[in-house]
Nucleic acid binder design. Sequence first.
RNA 1: GCGCUCUUAGCUCAGCAGGAUAGAGCAACAGCCUUCUAAGCUGUGGGUCGGGCGUUCGAAUCGCCCAGAGCGCGCCA
Length: 584
Amino acid sequence: MNLLLENKINAAMADIFNQLGLDTRFAFVKVSDRPDLSDFQCNGALALAKTAHKNPREIAAAIVSELQKCDFVETLSVDGPGFINIKLKNEFIAQNTDKIAQDERLGCGTTENPHRVVLDYGGPNVAKEMHVGHLRSGVIGEAIRRIERFIGNDVIGDVHLGDWGTPMGMILAEIMRQDGNLDKVTTYDIAQITEFYKRANIRCKEDETAKETARKITAALQDGDAVLRAAWQHLRNESVKAIKENYAKLDVNFDLWWGESDAHETCGKIVELARQKGVSKVDNGAVIIRLEEGNKPKPPVILVKSDGGYTYHTTDIATIKMRVDDLKAQEIVYFTDSRQALHFEQVFEGVQKLGIAPNVGLKHIVFGTVNGADGKPFKTRDGGVMNLETLIEMSKDKVRQSLPKAGEIEGYGEAEIEKMVSQIAVAAIKFQDLKNTINSGYVFELDDFAKFEGKTGPYIQYAIARINSVLRKAQANGLEPANVVLQAPEERTLALKLAQLHNVVMRAHQEKEPSIIADYTYSLAQTFSTFYNACPIMSAGNTALASSRLRLAKLVRDVLTLMLYLLGIEAPEVMLKAENKGEE
RNA sequence: GCGCUCUUAGCUCAGCAGGAUAGAGCAACAGCCUUCUAAGCUGUGGGUCGGGCGUUCGAAUCGCCCAGAGCGCGCCA
């Protein structure tokens, strides 16, 4: 069930359009761009005027004269060149709000076409530190995972670890270079492993022979050399442990911890299949699939390199086959930055030629890179990338300054305060990222992740905390939420805003765009703050009004909490403040 | 050279299945705490929507051209 106000108006519109012989494609309303004139507007008459060769105002007038008969209409007008402005009756909005408040999904429906979707939003590499570049895909992916699940899809989130390429050979080579063998590998922890990788990286950049050695070791590892495999397994285990800790701090979760290595066996099958189907060719010693025909020629997919190794084209294609065959995926969605756009176009086209994923939707959601002030992908001053843990700690430090010290307030010891610190800091970081549309890259401003005012996660948490406070007071005074009555304009605006939930969630789902939810959540919190300022609840004057306002407030709290949940953000029950807060 | 993405307020960004006065946040300025948490609220200023041409009754939104930015272009993932 969805309790969208538009639905009722749209149904009436469709009837009227039919009756008048008008194209029902235009029989819909949208939230008005002119709240001073109306709640909803219909621009259908303008669109129809073109083909019908009629005056749009005449068409609009005909629609309006029918619409007048509807019981939910308060006022109607035709304005400008032919806009139909519709204002709803207060009672209609109020009753709808009551229904939403009593609905366990808060008026939000589910998808008509539930299916299994695999999300690929991780991609951290073994032995490499996690940095701010990993923030976007993880945070966005987690949000999409929750949104998809909420609207009724069966979701599997896969981390798709980078655990099988040349970097693995590089690090093993570096360890052997220092130790002479791999006997000590199992004693190394993640910090040591990371150091080895850094050194290996530098060496391979400078020294062509070192690179060649790394390639040979990689090939031997993939070929199944027992000693190399055992050492690699340890590196992988240690990395996964560290990666899990990092993701846990941000509440980013995965259902599967597959990696590129898991696709290795299937890679062979892909190459064989390509040969059988006649879609691959041998070229300069490599096995490739050409993608030159059609109106958009692309560089070829390379299945097997001339040295016999597979590329990440091959592992990605093999992984798609596994997700389709073993996981029964009906849709697979990737989240990576725009630098991989061409790669996935190639992979998807290769998959199509191979016919291994018929009727499976393959999507690549491209997001912009996290950029520095210079407009280029973010680097710290020393040329490196900022560690994810450093970012989180920095934000936490800032939060701690605005909270009381442990023990200062009864019932809030070290554990309680630290939990609050973490919830607020993580909200600041994740919201800062999620409020940006996926498509555009954004400039990484360190300070932005420790801002708590304006369009931020903590702003929304604060609105929730204030409502919780009111709800506690209401309970202490025996005040119960009851039927909504709309008198003040702030109440009306808030009720209309609350009814938009279904559309917002569905759009976020369809477009795979969490910023739509972030925008709405902020806007709702803002609308509530205005209401909160103008409409006292506990001292409303009479019980009916107080109960109505209490229902509105509680509903806002529930919707905000749900929206933050869909974004992967928790809200603390209360938000304490340090005594000297704001006195600088 | 070819391809992809982009250019909107001082800064960071929304808006783009064409539509009525182009919106937020930050920053600036002026107000609001003896009333439910001021991490808040109210108000003011700030824009030739990169430039040009075209389609249209109507273009930030669609098409073409130009300028600028970022990214990517067969054996690194």
